[in-house]
Design a protein around this nucleic acid. Sequence first.
DNA 1: CCAACCATGTAAGCTGTTACATGATTGA
DNA 2: TCAATCATGTAACAGCTTACATGGTTGG
Lengths: 183, 183
Amino acid sequence: MADQGKGVTALGYALLGQISIASRSGYALRMVFETTPMGTYSSSPGSIYPALKSLCAKGLARTVGQGRGGRYEITTAGTELLDRWLRQPVTAEEVARRLDLALLRFAFLMAHPDRGLTHAFLRSFETATAARAAELKGFLETETGAAMPLQARLAVEHGQRSLETSARWAADSLRRLTAEQGE
Amino acid sequence: MADQGKGVTALGYALLGQISIASRSGYALRMVFETTPMGTYSSSPGSIYPALKSLCAKGLARTVGQGRGGRYEITTAGTELLDRWLRQPVTAEEVARRLDLALLRFAFLMAHPDRGLTHAFLRSFETATAARAAELKGFLETETGAAMPLQARLAVEHGQRSLETSARWAADSLRRLTAEQGE
DNA sequence: CCAACCATGTAAGCTGTTACATGATTGA
DNA sequence: TCAATCATGTAACAGCTTACATGGTTGG
């Protein structure tokens, strides 16, 4: 019966994640996108307000109060959906097409009561990025010189090196989070 | 009179760039997306064929032949539009939101007669990625401890490190291309 | 009282996604 | 001849972008 998160977009999850930490007004949510690097996930009021309405229509969020003090808060169904989303492991496919979505999950895992999830995420993130980097490397090795001029190789190498950096980031982050917990 | 590339999307440029190198059938173009890392820019026939039609409707491409041997080729207007696009420098704004578009330009600059453009691109790419990385670093330094838990910092750091890698890639690529020309 | 900012929206247009449909050709 | 692959589409739907519109509140 639970509609499996059908149609919740990156922006939808970005909003849901925010209000799961603390209820906020639409304007306050907008400001987060405009003043922090989370801005990658949205732009203008024309996308945020409709997205909030859509979350309400799906029963994942609700409004409390109105006018000046109106805020959005997450519902039980919203919490459950967010939880299922946060538990998804990172796949090589996701890394190839939607790395931003994976990073978004990481950011919100910060507030999740199950601290083990962050560790699981980072492990699967490291595996998936390394795997995708290897795929690109394999592609470069298969395609021989003539079929692939230097400049095309360089373009693919950008992706490869970028993903290797991501994998290292995951390993480093895991260490730092573990160190913090142990203190 | 020239419609300044209004409404040409990433996929549109990806297609235009391909046929500027050699005329191809729609299917051949699809296969490029399905078998190479260029696949990031598209997915299914449902997007490629309409995009090709749209290019034709805008007078940027045309079909030659039909059925089995039908191919798409670029028009003069298409060549001019592509040229203007390829000459655009990389900005910090583009790096923040559409790094993929910048990389796409790089890949097609390979076929451009003006070899100086590739060098100009790489220099502006390096500057822009480094600038954006510095922005993120500045953000991390401004936001103090309490307002920003470790895990949120780490998420931003991912972006920062990734962009630093991009900047290094640009510098390395410039060296390698210069070396190749000098041989 | 006027400008600036808070706060929330609507509407048009375009793209992309998903899923389905179709016919030709070729190798087993 | 039958399956796979070549090759090209269409239709429904949903989302984002851009641009515009609207009122309340507060500081100078």
